[in-house]
């Protein structure tokens, strides 16, 4: 009994000392690590807007946006410190947009994408595709930006995240009108509608039945995408859209382009 007590006590003491020591070291190093991350971000900020003289931080839905001004106080653009969903978890990145809504720079921060596969998002060719895109561009996978095959999840995730961030920036900082891919079903009269949008290989045509202000049925009239892969998208997307009564649903991974095509086609049908 005394022995057991002694053992437990010894472990407890060692554990307490270790824990205490670690919290002290953490107290010393954590601010340094944070400072450096801030410093790197500031450097990136200056890289995007060399003339930046001051900036303001604004928090929108948990993400930070920095509006940049030059020495004369003229608004130059916005840098968003944002996150995208990738294959291996969140991808943190900075997106710089100038005052006319063009993407002028992007910096990928921490990410866990598989080396050699998902990390194409950090390579020049992918960055080249992104930089120069305008707010008015669709910025949609397969439409004006191609996903990289073999890394569809990572690149597709980046592209849809960039579109989302562009909308946030456009709406909040540039006073742009954001065209919502969302449909006000109450304004759609009952009936059957047909719409067409580009899938993976060519157009996907859908027929949508609306009754009582609800989407009750979606049917794929024709498509040309790879059987097997696209079947998953069709099987997955249609119930999702009908259940959510919305087009803001997750894509079927592995068949992102077909999924996106279906969403776009339904949107075209109902708009």
């Amino acid at each position: 009994m005394r022995n057991a007590l002694r053992m437990a006590l010894t472990l407890l003491i060692i554990g307490a000392i270790c824990g205490g020591l670690l919290s002290v070291v953490n107290g010393i190093t954590a601010p340094i690590i944070k400072d450096r991350a801030d410093q790197q971000f500031l450097q990136a900020l200056e890289g995007f807007f060399p003339d930046v003289a001051k900036f303001e931080v604004q928090d929108i839905n948990g993400e930070e946006f920095y509006s940049c001004y030059d020495a004369a106080g003229k608004f130059m653009g916005v840098v968003g410190k944002v996150k995208a969903k990738g294959y291996g978890g969140d991808i943190a990145y900075d997106l710089a947009v100038n005052d006319t809504g063009d993407i002028i720079g992007m910096r990928i921060g921490a990410h866990n994408e598989t080396p050699g596969i998902g990390d194409v998002i950090n390579k020049d060719p992918f960055l080249q595709k992104i930089i120069g895109l305008k707010f008015t561009d669709p910025i949609s996978a397969g439409v004006d930006v191609d996903t990289t095959s073999g890394a569809t999840v990572s690149t597709g995730g980046m592209i849809s995240s960039i579109r989302r961030v562009m909308n946030v920036i456009g709406e909040n900082f540039l006073g742009m009108e954001v065209e919502k891919a969302e449909i006000d079903l109450t304004k759609v009269a009952d009936g059957t509608y047909t719409g067409k949008a580009r899938g993976f290989k060519s157009d996907i045509t859908v027929q949508v039945v609306v009754s009582g202000g609800k989407i009750t049925q979606i049917e794929i009239v024709s498509h040309d995408d790879t059987p097997g892969i696209s079947d998953n998208a069709i099987k997955g997307m249609i119930p999702k859209i009908i259940e959510a009564q919305s087009l803001e649903v997750d894509m079927v991974s592995g068949a992102t382009l077909t999924s996106q095509g279906i969403v776009n086609a339904v949107f075209e049908a109902l708009k």
Binding site: Y87, T114, I117, V153, S253, G254
Partner: peptide
């Protein structure tokens, strides 16, 4: 996220 991709990557790739 795709569970099948996780399995494939973890076992083979």
């Amino acid at each position: 996220m795709n569970l099948l991709a996780i399995v494939f990557v973890a076992i083979l790739a």
